[in-house]
Design a protein around this nucleic acid. Structure first.
Lengths: 148, 148
DNA sequence: CTGCCACTTCAAGCCGACTTGAGGTCAAGC
DNA sequence: GCTTGACCTCAAGTCGGCTTGAAGTGGCAG
């Protein structure tokens, strides 16, 4: 059978065995058997790990990632949920785009103070629009912050 | 003088005072004076905080953000460095785009197993291309992972 | 003048995502 | 048949980014 030893998976995926164990623990991947003590993985795990890497780089927590791609296989959630995630990523992309453009502008704009450059302010405002409350604000309801 | 009390900054920016103190400590923002004990901030700090928020959401560490936008004001680094950061963000955007498209595809594709859907595989491969070593891999040289 | 209450400092705690260390197991190669 | 090397478990440690707690301060409303 063409199962992969954890070592191979580690090497091919760029994760350390300890990270793979941690992911298994966290329910993100699962090993199919053991060879002696060594975990053996199905080859699909490499794809899953790629998805996990993408999710991490996208700023999602392992829990959220587990939420996108079912614990023991491929995504199988309600379409709506997936679309919602996609929307979330879209928002993130827009922020990133604004940040990137801001950086580029700043690199090239000759204005003495960026604070007074309308282009700069416009760019920064881009991301601020429709802010509401997003991103991670821990778990408490942290509404208008009372500080303690 | 139209300085803002830390409380106002907290409210307007959506950060808690404790976080603002932490940012000041970290050299990301600076207060201009005190009113009694209370820190007072120049109004520009709101803009800076927006930039910080953008940077965080982009997945940069506070240190990296401090590196983009000079400690006590606006960005004033070598152009090249800013362009490099912009490139980095661009890469991140491409990954996010691939992830978003993957998610959307998965939500709509009727194939029984995504593993066998060529569109899926192609999407996932998008992000894998030109991977090299990016993102955060702690500080050690963690090359081919020896596990201990 | 007196509370009050949001702020202050400082130290400690917490969470996520792993890594590290000690001590152990085992299939494979010599 | 013994050594070796990469894995195993489990507990503890680390790091970033804050939050929380205790103890204190001070401007302002009444």
């Amino acid at each position: 059978m063409k199962f992969l030893d954890i070592g191979e998976v580690a090497e091919k995926s760029g994760n350390k065995p300890s990270a793979l164990r941690y992911y298994e623990e966290a329910g993100l991947i699962s090993s199919v058997s053991r060879h002696g003590l060594r975990r053996q993985f199905a080859p699909e795990v490499l794809l899953q790990l790629k998805l996990i890497a993408m999710g991490k780089s996208a700023g999602f927590s392992l829990d959220e990632i587990a939420g996108m791609f079912g614990r023991n296989g491929m995504p199988d959630l309600p379409r709506a949920a997936l679309h919602a995630k996609a929307e979330e990523i879209d928002r993130r992309i827009r922020e990133l785009t604004a940040l990137r453009d801001t950086l580029r502008h700043v690199a090239d704009c000759p204005a003495p103070s960026h604070m007074e450059c309308p282009t700069f302010r416009r760019l920064v405002d881009m991301a601020g629009k429709r802010s509401g409350k997003r991103a991670k604000m821990a778990k408490p309801k942290t509404g208008a912050s009372r500080d303690y």
